[in-house]
Amino acid sequence: MSARFGVVVFPGSNCEQDVVYALRFLGYDAAYIWHQDIDLSAYDALVLPGGFSHGDYLRCGAIARFAPAMEAVRRFAELGGPVIGICNGFQILTEAQLLPGALLRNRGLKFICETVPLRVELSVCQWLDLPAGAVVRIPINHNEGNYVCDPETLAGMEVRGQIVLRYCEPDGSRAPEGSAPNGALDDIAGICNESGTVFGLMPHPERVVDGIAGLTDGAAFFAAIARRIEEMVA
């Protein structure tokens, strides 16, 4: 039985079709969930896609986090269900305080759209099918990706293995002045919760699964979830 992913669509989401396409390309079952839906019992895993939910008004994700579906997402997450937030989805997860910290406007004030190298860190994240130290290339596409949190939160996340992905140089090293094109604290590109079941990241793995754009590094971001679900069902 293949894993059934639910992709939550908010007014202003615009990457939900990419996510569903990528999941179906990889052989998984995927369906859309409207932000007003509250019954998520049909799904094994949830994805909050990128976009500009509610116009990014006030703050990115600030309004979407109060959508009826988000209460169901919270309950799903509390039960250990896999949740991935990509770009605006990551912003929504931080606003909902399902993940620590916040995402500020890019330090250089520019919208950034480019494919960047990312280093996989040693973390408790359960949904990444890649070894620590691996370097992948994934597109980023955002105006508010400058991750911040207070020093105590950062230290705690480091100790608990919640930092999943860092921006890096092509060889996997980190530049002394920082490798994050958006100015993110400690080059952070993706984090997870303490149990490793809620994962948020600014890059868009769904855009690089089928090789059409020349890369397939994104597949590993969905494969671990699917395998875990298939193991649980079996």
Binding site: L58, A62, T94, E95, A102, L104, V148, D150
Partner: peptide
């Protein structure tokens, strides 16, 4: 709750 994000 909404108008400000107390984290930042």
């Amino acid at each position: 709750k909404l108008l400000a994000n107390p984290i930042i």
